[in-house]
Computed example of a mutant assay.
Amino acid sequence: MNAPLEQLTQLIPPPSEPRDKDWDNAERALGVQLPTDYKELIHTYGGSNWDDYLYVLEPGCPNDNYDLIEWEDQQTEALDGLWEFEKKPSELEDERTRVIPWATTDNGECLYWLIRPGQQPDDWTVMVNEARGDRWEHFPHTCTQFLASALTGNLRSTILSSRFPLPVHEFRQLHAM
């Protein structure tokens, strides 16, 4: 277990039943291997809601609204249309760079992995995009580092809600609706 995930398990005890995934199918659908820390996060917590605000996406999520593969398809299409009208953030100017969503919020902000050419999945960092605007933030953290740091208050985003994290953490594993 990686250190940020261990920190999360101390903050919020994980559900008793881990979620096993067919990572080969998910990675084939996305066309990339996924980061090890994300796979461990999903195995431990599954698709989940943190502090009644942030939703971690899961491939094949029991709640279809938070399926990683569906979100990647939708966000790729949405961003392709967006770049026709808005300037890309500097981190995305290289045409070989791409983003894949790994989390969203109840306000519609989206958290992405920033994937640069030649970069290994375990080195991907986090980009946050505001819901209805062109502001982006880049954090040099893995997704699990980002989540743990956000929940402990060691990381602050100007895009995410000022009410996140909650003083007393809440957690919900996502289930079929």
Rank of each mutant, 00 (worst) to 15 (best):
E17T: 13
W23Y: 05
R172A: 12
N154T: 15
P101K: 09
D37Y: 01
V126I: 13
S162D: 15
Y66I: 08
E72M: 10
R172G: 06
P35W: 08
P101C: 10
F146H: 09
Y38V: 00
R98C: 12
S48E: 06
S90N: 07
E84N: 03
T104N: 07
L30E: 15
W113L: 13
G46E: 03
E130L: 15
L68D: 14
S161L: 11
G60L: 01
D22C: 08
L41M: 09
D122S: 03
M127C: 14
G47Y: 01
D24F: 04
N154M: 15
E86N: 10
R19H: 02
S16G: 12
G118P: 02
W102C: 08
T158H: 03
D52R: 10
E91S: 06
G133V: 06
G46Q: 02
P13K: 11
R132P: 04
Q119H: 02
N65H: 04
F171T: 14
L174D: 11
A176M: 15
R96Y: 05
R172M: 06
D123F: 03
E72G: 04
D73P: 09
D64V: 07
V32W: 03
P117Q: 07
C143L: 08
W102S: 03
R98L: 04
R163E: 13
G133W: 01
W83C: 08
A103D: 07
W102R: 05
T36L: 04
N63G: 05
L92R: 10
E6Y: 00
S90P: 00
G46A: 12
L155E: 07
E77T: 09
L11E: 13
Q74N: 06
T152D: 14
C61Y: 00
L166C: 09
I42L: 13
K39L: 05
D37W: 02
T104I: 12
T142S: 13
L114E: 09
T44R: 01
L82K: 05
R96K: 00
T36H: 04
G81E: 11
N65F: 00
E84V: 06
N107M: 15
L111K: 02
F85N: 09
W23Q: 06
A29L: 09
T158K: 02
A103Q: 03
E17G: 08
Y66M: 10
A150Q: 12
V56N: 07
E95R: 00
L155I: 08
V168F: 11
G118E: 12
A78C: 06
Q74D: 11
N49H: 03
E17H: 11
P4I: 07
Q10E: 08
P167Q: 08
F85D: 13
N65V: 03
W136K: 13
L174I: 10
P13A: 11
E91M: 14
E17R: 15
V32Q: 02
L30S: 13
W83G: 03
E84G: 02
L5M: 08
S149M: 15
L111N: 01
P14C: 06
L151G: 13
S157K: 09
L68W: 05
L82G: 10
R98Y: 07
Y45H: 05
H43T: 01
V168P: 09
R172Y: 00
W71V: 06
T158R: 03
L57C: 04
V128D: 03
N2T: 00
M177S: 15
